[in-house]
Design a protein around this nucleic acid. Structure first.
Length: 429
RNA sequence: GGAGAGUUGGCAGAGUGGUAAUGCACCGGACUCGAAAUCCGGCGAACCCGUUAGUUCGGGCGCGCAGGUUCAAAUCCUGUACUCUCCUCCA
């Protein structure tokens, strides 16, 4: 959630920033009108409340002295009624204001290219060399099905489209991938966490998936209480700090978790219908940081490097792009996407997204810290995938495939595979 | 699933209708060569609005959360979340 004071003090700047995210200026004007209205009402009701408090004191005094206070009490009945009606108006204005405020995306940082969508994203750097085999690379789903380590057909029967069974060496490879990632992040100073996979509405609001993106997730009712299957571990990891006032000396807080991620993929019908790229359920290793207000951009660079490190150790070619204002996620002020090379698709595909949310989520989730002067301040939050496991497995299958249909195991994963160096038809189970 | 108890500053802990004690911690001062101890004073429930050169000053709100009753609610009423204890069940 944006800071209303910041918008109030810099209305033109706020309009320009939000216009870069397709928010019409009129919406900001409406918000400012409501804010003005709200503060006027607040002054009125608070003046009456002050009066009520003073008179109540004198009523108490008179009662103690056994004096008559009927006149004051009668006056206060009217004041009480006035307060009630002003408060009702105030609540109405507040609700309208919040309705807009909680649906406004974060301001894009000055370093972010301004543009409407992914076409205006900008490549920052490239790493690795794109393999030029002497044979035509196969798609990972063909490799997986031919080796018998991925089964999409049976998953479709049991669950539906966009689900998969990993079998044998497939399951083992996925497990190797996430264990490797978690071990790396542990070495980089992240605390490993196993979070809840079902969260309440408040948590979904805290990281700002709600109220705007309710249709993208699966929500189950448990005795009338809605609980949502996490679309990313960012939700329970960031909300781990919700409502806390952290000692500034403890910052930055760094946590990481493997979790399944559940997404309904509403609106993506027809896209990536084959393979591991777009699933309703996929594993992801997530990194989350809570920082002070000064160091969040430095920490974003470090977190992106942590994600890149995984791809480099796996020796997978990738590039880093900075998302333009129109393509970045709702709560982010700046996002780097890491896209890995998929030879059969002949293009880069996203495997990680690292974002600095500034105090946008912290304001909603009330994540604060005490600085060296003892002052409480809103923290900054960051999140990044490190990495999406299914897509990483897809990239390994495609980049490490051999002409005979076998797949070589990346060196760093061999210890995680019990010494196996290659998946073949013979050892696949 | 059943029964009971609880939730108040950073921590401990009083407060059963009159507007949040007290202690520890913390900050300042005195004493001291210095420290500890002691004494004196202060801050602190964390956010909103107004005001200001300001980190100033004034006010509101604030006792798990949300409502209600009342001139006035930590206190009374209703609902609800969570924690603990016991019973029951369970990987």
């Amino acid at each position: 959630m944006l800071d209303i004071k910041l918008i109030r003090q810099n209305p033109d700047w706020a309009k320009e920033k939000l216009a870069a995210r397709s928010i019409p200026n009129e919406e900001v004007d409406e918000l400012l009108d409501l804010d003005k209205n709200r503060r006027d009402l607040l002054v009125q009701t608070e003046t009456l409340k002050e009066k009520r408090n003073t008179v109540s004191q004198s009523i108490a005094q008179k009662k103690r002295n056994k004096e008559n206070a009927d006149q004051e009490i009668a006056d206060m009945q009217q004041v009480g009624a006035d307060i009630k009606s002003l408060d009702a108006k105030l609540e109405e204005v507040n609700d309208k204001m919040n309705y807009i405020l909680v649906r406004l995306p974060n301001f894009p940082d000055d370093s972010v290219p301004v543009g409407p969508d992914e076409s205006t994203n900008k490549e920052i750097r490239k790493w690795g060399t794109i393999p030029t085999e002497g044979f035509k690379p196969k798609h990972h789903w063909d490799i997986g099905e031919q080796l018998g380590i991925l089964d999409f057909d049976q998953a479709a029967k049991v669950s539906g489209s966009r689900f998969v069974y990993y079998i044998g060496m497939g399951a083992r490879l996925e497990r190797a991938v996430y264990n490797f990632m978690l071990d790396q992040h542990h070495e980089e100073g992240y605390t490993e966490v196993i979070p809840p996979y079902l969260v309440n509405n408040e948590a979904m609001f805290g990281t700002s998936q709600f109220p705007k993106f309710t249709e993208d997730v699966y929500t189950v009712m448990v005795d009338e209480n809605p609980l949502t299957l996490i679309p990313t571990a960012e939700v329970p990891l960031t909300n781990y700090f919700a409502g806390k006032i952290i000692d500034g000396k403890e910052l930055p807080e760094k946590v990481t978790a493997l979790s399944p991620s559940f997404r309904s993929e509403a609106g993506s019908a027809g896209r990536d219908t084959r393979g591991l790229i777009r699933m309703h359920q996929f594993n992801k290793v997530e990194m989350v940081k809570v920082t002070d207000q000064e160091s969040s951009f430095d920490e974003l660079e470090k977190m992106t490097a942590n994600a890149e490190n995984i791809l480099q150790k796996l020796n997978l070619p990738y590039h880093v792009i900075v998302l333009s204002s129109g393509d970045a996620s709702f709560s982010s002020t700046k996002t780097y996407d890491l896209e890995v090379w998929l030879p059969a698709q002949d293009k880069y595909r996203e495997v990680s997204s690292c974002s600095n949310c500034l105090d946008f989520q912290a304001r909603r989730a009330q994540i604060r810290y005490r600085d060296e002067n003892g002052k409480t301040k809103l923290a900054h939050t960051l999140n990044g995938s490190g990495l999406a496991c299914g897509r990483t497995v897809a990239a390994i299958l495609e980049n490490y495939q051999n002409e005979d249909g076998s797949v070589t195991i990346p060196d760093v994963l061999v210890p995680y595979m019990g010494g196996v160096t290659k998946i073949t038809k013979e050892n696949a189970k």
